[in-house]
Design a protein around this nucleic acid. Structure first.
Lengths: 218, 218
DNA sequence: TTTAAAATTTAGACAAGACTAAAAAATAAA
DNA sequence: TTTATTTTTTAGTCTTGTCTAAATTTTAAA
């Protein structure tokens, strides 16, 4: 059985490894977990003892099969709870992350199986992130960062990379959400800022925004 | 903010105080929490520092107004989650306690308020225990232990005192549940054992059983 | 009312998980 | 390639919540 702290480290390592494709450094983990590098060293040594990560001194860490499976299960729980909060309890999509961070650690396989049924086996959470299935399989989705699109290309918003409340509220005030159709009207070479069109309205957005919106191009 | 351990102590002290009407002893808490008296001493000193219990050395502890309000809120959450698990996720009444023990510690007032609405503001949990309202008010219910009834008296089962899975399963196999009509057919003076009738079937039950079933008499 | 037993508290230790400061290793710069 | 910088690890400390063993207080018995 894993403690709350251990589960959070596994989740963080999973996300980092996923984003960068490679093994993750001590500092990267410390950064993500908002803790000190020395604390991370302690923990990754413990996790290595438990065979959930492979780790060599000074060489960073990466999840073992077992570690990955635990991490994915936590993410599955997180995303299912998010669906519950939005679909059943009428939360806004920017309000659910913190609560799901707590709920994801509830230990009961039967609970998650029943919750999944109750929600009708959803494929995506309210931010467009795919929900891993019972076996930990995550359906690969072809999605592109808005920042990768060129002038005049368009697509449907299928997810957000960053999901902080502030960013989500930024999107809300501009009526951008999962399913929104977005077209690049203009793109500035110099700083990658864009003018986009969302249902007849045009907005100017910075690179920071376009790098956090996933689209399915048409 | 209170830690998980602190919350569990407050809840235990609340239940003990409620059952016995009086301040609770260190040993009673240790017993309930399945821990050592010395650990309890440590914790109740900490809780006294935080002004949630009043405590004098060697004299036992009792909740302050603030402590009581925290404890009741945890109990409210526990019981609401139990309703959710049984009503929405189709759990049996003997399966929900452990999961609710985890869920009761999730911190979010908005979550509980929305959960309560979603469930239609239930008054009782699946074991017949009243759900405290937002202000911590617990509607007093006139219920009697089956063990207090005399020969030929009858009532409707409105709750169970003990709610271990084993006891609940014992009731299930005899088709006794919340709402069952129970009549005392015979009562043995010597050991308080009874013969009871539940919808045309008669059962012999020991004092241990009759002391854990609450009835509303008619 | 003095003594014996039970209950409670103190003292000291330990594990988990975090921290600071300092040492060691790896990487980048000159 | 040697030096400087950054990264990582070690050593030692702290807090929370637990434990055992011993000391103290309270309660029950003689």
């Amino acid at each position: 059985m894993f403690t709350l702290a251990e589960e959070n480290y596994l989740k963080a390592i999973f996300h980092l490894e996923n984003d960068c494709g490679t093994g993750v450094t001590t500092n990267a983990i410390a950064d993500k977990m908002d803790t000190r590098a020395s604390s991370v060293t302690d923990m990754i040594q413990k996790l290595a003892d438990k065979k959930v990560i492979s780790y060599q001194k000074y060489k960073g860490a990466s999840l073992t099969k077992k570690g990955k499976s635990i991490a994915v299960n936590i993410i599955r729980k997180h995303r299912l709870w998010e669906v519950f909060l939005v679909e059943k309890l009428d939360f806004q999509w920017d309000e659910v992350h913190e609560i799901a961070e707590q709920l994801e650690h509830i230990k009961s396989n039967e609970l998650i199986q029943k919750l999944d049924s109750f929600l009708g086996h959803p494929d995506f959470d309210p931010h467009g992130d795919p929900i891993p299935d019972t076996n930990g399989y995550i359906k690969p989705t072809e999605k592109k960062l808005l920042s990768k699109l060129k002038k005049n290309q368009q697509g449907i918003c299928v997810g957000v990379k960053e999901s902080s409340a502030k960013f989500l509220q930024y999107l809300d005030t501009r009526k951008i959400g999962i399913g929104s159709s977005i077209k690049v009207i203009d793109k500035e070479d110099f700083d990658q800022s864009m003018t986009i069109q969302v249902s007849n309205k045009q907005f100017f957005i910075t690179k920071q925004i376009s790098e956090n919106l996933y689209l399915k191009t048409i």
